[in-house]
């Protein structure tokens, strides 16, 4: 599955990109700017998950379900099991979201288009409704997350940043391996023609289910990383429908062209939000809304299409 993957240009560029971001974030930039990079890298994982779904024209308006579930899994593991180890945290987040995705996948794999979107939304709001009222999980105030450790030592902000970079690189490798495989190529094929896929002898529902679980794992991982990075989880900023909306927005802003695009898009989004909030606190939603419309109308391929025009590698669309 991973044969020769490190020789592929997408992965080499991706690893280079993550290295640059992490180095910028840890050594060069002031903390507020570096936070944007850290959050962007983390949330980019969830966007990557959405992008993989979107390639089959399935758009989840409730992906914050997995993002929030991963984040809360980290919080719960800390509260009841005392887990603060960063490796365990990310594994728990991914496993929890993956398991939930696996179960719900049996239902969602039968849905397409707006029904898929709406059912995803409904599931995410069910979780929101539960978390917002669950007093033992802090209701709407959420819970705080203590600093992450690694092998018993406190990781610190830089250490966490390196770790996030590491997880992102692994995810890039995994996502690329999936998308270049026969199964991954089925994703576009299913969007084009489900009947033919069935007649080629593969179950469309199974292919969608696999993809859905992968997508859920990525979103859960993003939630776990964000929980560790923010030191806080709460339903309004992690599970509410507007969070899902933001993730979808970043996906379309980034473009579906390349697995690096979600991370570029997510970092860009963090910057718009911070700047807009800083310099125009009463207009930041307007700026984001305007950006969204501008991208839809003038840059249908997303930000990535800009990169492609100036990209010296001339990458073929994968």
């Amino acid at each position: 599955m991973f044969k020769g993957i490190l020789k592929e240009q997408t992965i080499q560029v991706g690893i280079g990109f993550v290295f640059i971001v992490v180095l910028l974030g840890t050594f060069i930039l002031p903390e507020w700017m570096s936070n944007n990079f850290m959050y962007g890298l983390s949330r980019g994982l969830a966007v990557l998950g959405l992008m993989i779904l979107w390639r089959t024209n399935l758009v989840s308006f409730g992906h914050a379900l997995y993002y929030g579930f991963g984040a809360y899994a980290v919080a719960i593991a800390q509260k009841y099991l005392g887990v603060t180890d960063v490796f365990l945290r990310i594994l728990i987040a991914i496993a929890a979201a993956g398991l939930l995705g696996f179960v719900l996948g049996f239902i969602l794999r039968r849905y397409r288009e707006i029904f898929f979107a709406m059912l995803s939304l409904a599931f995410s709001m069910v979780l929101y409704g539960l978390l917002a009222k669950a007093e033992f999980l802090g209701s709407t105030d959420g819970m705080s997350i203590s600093p992450s450790t690694m092998f018993g030592f406190e990781l610190g902000r830089f250490g966490l940043f390196y770790f996030i970079g590491f997880v992102v690189i692994l995810s890039l490798i995994f996502a690329h391996a999936y998308l270049r495989s026969s199964l991954g190529h089925l994703t576009t094929a299913i969007m084009d023609n489900e009947i033919r896929v069935e007649y080629l002898g593969y179950s469309v529902e199974k292919a969608i289910h696999i993809k859905y679980v992968i997508s859920a794992c990525l979103a859960g991982g993003a939630g776990g990383l964000m929980a560790a990075a923010l030191g806080q989880v709460d339903p309004d900023s992690m599970v509410l429908w507007s969070v899902s909306g933001e993730l979808v927005f970043v996906t379309i802003m980034a473009g579906l062209g390349n697995i690096l695009a979600p991370f570029v898009g997510a970092i860009f989004f963090e910057f718009i939000r911070t700047y807009a909030y800083e310099f125009a606190p009463q207009a930041w939603q307007m700026i984001i809304g305007g950006t969204l419309l501008a991208i839809i109308f003038f840059l249908p391929g997303g930000l990535w299409s800009l990169f492609q025009k100036i990209n010296p590698f001339k990458k073929e669309k994968k």
Binding site: M1, K3, G4, A177, Y178, R180, S181, S182, L183, G184, H185, L186, T188, A189, M191, D192, L200, G201, Y202
Partner: peptide, 26 residues
């Protein structure tokens, strides 16, 4: 939306591979 060769490659890999072999590069 795919090329001729991609079409046939998908058909061929689905008929010749199964299980985890489907995760190998197409």
């Amino acid at each position: 939306s795919m090329t001729v060769k991609q079409n046939l490659m998908i058909a061929m890999s689905l008929s010749k591979k199964s299980g985890s072999a489907l995760l190998d590069p197409i």
